[in-house]
Amino acid sequence: MIRLEGVNKFFGHHHVLKNINLNVKSGEKLVIIGPSGSGKSTLIRSANLLEKPTSGKVIVNGVDITAPKAPVAKVRQSVAMVFQQFNLYPHKTVLENLTLAPVLIKGVPKAEAEESAKAFLERVGLTAKANAYPSQLSGGQQQRVAIARALNMKPQIMLFDEPTSALDPEMIQEVLDVMVDLAHGGITMVVVTHEMGFARQVADRVIFMDEGEIIEQGPPEHFFVNPTHERTKLFLSRILR
């Protein structure tokens, strides 16, 4: 579904991604963990080309989006992203946040887009906030709206870039609940997170990154119980304290 082939990324002289090869299968739940600065955010942002790799290929559904004149915008319609900072459109209501892109980009009739928007708002438990503005919502509510906004594009793949890192602790669970619910729905998910409980619960595969490289990967039962690499052990011992 998403394939990264020999992806390198430099910021100036800083080598952030080192020859990354990764294949995400349809319906797979992939969780990426690693210390901050390990390149995991850059990796997930390469998957929809918000970061353009310095070299290597990113292939989504068979389309090489790193090729010149690739239909990047078209591909992005099917690869939704949820950001650490929510990035809701502050000048639009919650409902408008959900319908803006489907109507303008995909050409979905407005009534239809609103109907599905309301269904997704119900799914994330925010039907009552349809006409509120983002600034009137708590952080947890905003992130749930952001997930609903991503869903209303009817994507094939969902990318989550540290979706709970900016939240107050008491709001983290409400967002994770929504994500667990999504995972059960069968959509392809790539999640960068520090929430190990979530990783254990939903991941088909966990990847550990450090210093721009994939150090270790495997199903969560092996990964958490029996990590092979020293750096993985060190990281897990710190985070699972």
């Binding site: 918000l50 992203m81 980009i105």
Partner: peptide
Amino acid sequence: HRGQLEAGLSQGFS
């Protein structure tokens, strides 16, 4: 904020 542009681009806006 730069995130606004990224949100738009990630949804398929030019």
